[in-house]
């Protein structure tokens, strides 16, 4: 006890946010999701959170045998809110990226899903249509070639993308010289603007785009071009946790391993996302 008291005081003195003390097994945790990224996570009419990640979170908690509370948190405040302890885990289709790893830690990925464009069917890019190719940003030459093919097709267009995402970093890095980029707080807002015709293209995870395009008012829109993974997009979607919660990380990793092994992630992903996003080890 005394040592942990000293450690706590020391952590203040040295300006640390929290010392790695008291690593007991957590009995109850709070998991945050965005609640506005269907079908990964969304809010229903009666105010309940639902979707792939909500089901998965409940499944993981069952495996870890701890009590879980799932709460909604705005995307752009997600990481600061985690670090100040408003909740313990983020499960909001957050990519495990270098930049984020400087601030928080992640479990292993529980889903890998490429990002791509959605555009009007009669646009230049729309006529090219969807390709099932996936480009890893680490393979710079081939990824750059794919990007160079897309560039002239998006010239002068307006691309809508959610703020504070790896998707935004990607379009900013590769397309800001040819297209105008608009940042939205939620993907639901850029969906509304695509339907309204204010923007010409969306860039997001392909599963989320596919779900959006499944709605009747988007019958004139299609996924287009290849999907991108790796690099800026990191290792895929993982559960975000504070760096010092080592015990929790181990527990979550174990539960994710089990959920991958017994096909739960595959089942849930086919149910919600209509394609298998299980990470390949």
């Amino acid at each position: 006890m005394k040592i942990s008291r000293i450690a706590a005081i020391a952590s203040v003195l040295f300006g640390l946010v929290q010392a790695a003390v008291a690593q007991e097994t957590p009995k109850a945790i709070t998991i945050a999701t965005e609640g506005a990224y269907a079908p990964w996570n969304f809010t229903t009419a009666d105010g309940k959170l639902d979707g792939f990640e909500v089901d998965l979170a409940n499944d993981l908690c069952g495996r870890m045998k701890i009590e879980c509370k799932i709460v909604a948190q705005d995307w752009d405040g997600m990481i600061p809110a985690l670090t100040v302890g408003k909740f313990d885990v983020i499960m909001a289709s957050m990519f495990i990226t270098e930049k984020r790893l400087k601030i928080i830690d992640f479990t292993q990925p529980y889903a890998v899903d490429p990002s791509g464009f959605a555009v009007a069917k009669d646009s230049e890019l729309g006529k090219v249509g969807i390709s099932n190719e996936r480009f890893k940003l680490e393979n710079e030459a081939s990824a750059q070639a794919a990007i160079d093919k897309l560039k002239p097709l998006l010239k002068g267009k307006i691309i809508g993308v959610q703020a504070a995402t790896a998707n935004l970093e990607f379009v900013k890095k590769y397309f800001s010289d040819v297209a105008e980029i608009r940042e939205y707080k939620t993907t639901e807002q850029h969906d509304l603007d695509l339907a309204a015709g204010r923007i010409d293209a969306l860039f997001a995870q392909q599963t989320a785009l596919a779900a959006t395009l499944g709605k009747p008012e988007f019958s004139d829109y299609t996924l287009a071009g290849p999907g991108f993974v790796g690099g800026l997009f990191g290792l895929g979607s993982g559960a975000g946790i504070r760096k010092e919660d080592i015990k929790l990380k181990d527990m979550l990793n174990g539960a994710i391993d089990a959920a991958i092994a017994d096909g739960t992630i595959k089942t849930l992903s086919l149910k919600w996302l209509k394609s298998d996003v299980t990470p390949v080890k």
Binding site: S4, R5, A7, A8, I9, S11, V12, V17, Q18, A19, V21, A22, V84, G85, K86, F87
Partner: peptide, 15 residues
């Protein structure tokens, strides 16, 4: 949170 720490607690104070 840092006030909580200075009073000897560890862990986070969420508002």
């Amino acid at each position: 949170t840092s006030l909580g720490h200075s009073l000897g607690g560890s862990g986070f104070v969420g508002v």
